[in-house]
Design a binder for these strands. Structure first.
Length: 336
DNA sequence: ATCCAGACCT
DNA sequence: AGGTCTGGAT
């Protein structure tokens, strides 16, 4: 960790900054009203300011305060959200309003823990509300702040979790107790208008004089790309086996591993020519292949599964071994 | 099409 | 740490 004066310098430079760039006179700026700060921060999650503006204005018009939002139905809220995307934000907003009514007498909570406890509010959003609405010292670490800090202090940890941990420490060290509202507004603005993902305007950056990435000419290297996941590909054949009565053979998977304990088609991974022999060995049923369906893939975090469905017919004489189960009682692992 | 990133949630 | 949703870049 760098000496603390270094972070103080950063704070001072950022605090002194007056954004000369146009387009940042946003309707929610400098409204120290916790309700409006909350609404705007939620809308701004994963959504650009220019997109948010009209939604924000009509939302505030329809629901000017917590009480009006508490009394609204979820349908009314979702209706105003139509077209904005990430609709769970609207559902969380509605739930949070109920929570505020139930637990805080309809008053927006003022302390960090209580704000963080609202559905849809994570660490960064809670910090933003605390800082912007109440002027409390609270760090934020949204996408913009991450980029600004990563560049200013050349944070390049390989592992994303470590990088995030370090960035939070830096955010905490830089965030001033005095003028926290202005500081928070400025770091957001800096990331949005100057320290942009591409073509950052380093010539006009207020912290350019101490920016590590700038001084080492590595601006485009920060923030470091996430460690790419090497996704191996696994190919399996899933056997869709029907008997003469068109009943489907499913089996429960082993309790551990992929789709543990779920019902699935018999999974076969060897060469297709041997599938009849394999089926006999495992199920003592004779099958005839009807057809091979087009392969499709299903992506997991660590690998891609290429699935070839194989439609087969089970010989009639074996069908007595089937156990008939109501399909509604079976937990299937994926749609067909 | 595919990959990637950014928020919160479990 | 992984899942989920989604928009944007390639």
């Amino acid at each position: 960790m760098k000496p603390s004066e270094f972070f103080d310098d950063f704070s001072q430079l950022l605090l002194k900054w007056r954004n000369p760039l146009p387009g940042r006179d946003l309707p929610w700026a400098f409204e120290p009203n916790p309700y409006k700060v909350w609404i705007s921060e939620i809308m701004l999650q994963q959504t650009q300011a220019t997109t948010v503006i009209p939604y924000y204005l009509s939302f505030i018009e329809k629901f000017p305060d917590i009480t009006s939002l508490t009394e609204a139905s979820i349908d009314e809220v979702l209706n105003l959200w139509t077209g904005l995307g990430y609709y769970s934000r609207a559902r969380n907003l509605h739930r949070a309003a109920q929570q505020i009514a139930d637990q805080h007498n309809g008053q927006f909570p003022t302390n960090f823990e209580e704000i963080l406890a609202l559905p849809g509010v994570g660490l960064s959003t809670a910090g933003a509300i605390c800082a912007l609405a109440f002027g409390h010292k609270a760090p934020i670490l949204d996408g913009n702040a991450k980029r600004v800090y990563a560049r200013s202090f050349c944070v390049d940890d390989e592992k994303d979790s470590q990088r995030t941990r370090r960035l939070w420490k830096i955010a905490d060290a830089c965030t001033p107790a005095e003028d926290c509202q202005k500081y928070t507004q400025n770091i957001m603005d800096l990331g949005a208008t100057v320290c942009t993902p591409r073509n950052p305007k380093c010539e006009v950056c207020p912290v350019g004089s101490l920016c590590c990435a700038k001084s080492t000419n590595l601006i485009e290297k920060f923030p470091a790309r996430k460690q790419r996941v090497i996704r191996k590909t696994k190919a399996v054949t899933l056997v869709v086996a029907l008997d003469q009565c068109n009943r489907l053979l499913l089996e429960r998977r082993p309790p551990a591993g992929i789709w543990g304990g779920l019902w699935s088609f018999p999974e076969y991974s060897d060469h297709i020519d041997n599938v009849q022999k394999w089926f006999w060995q495992n199920y003592t049923m004779k099958i005839s292949i009807i057809q091979t369906w087009d392969p499709f893939h299903h992506d997991f975090t660590h690998f891609r599964l290429n699935i070839t469905p194989l439609l087969v017919q089970i010989a009639d004489s074996e069908s007595h071994r089937f156990l008939e189960v109501d399909i509604d009682l079976v937990s299937l692992d994926k749609p067909l």
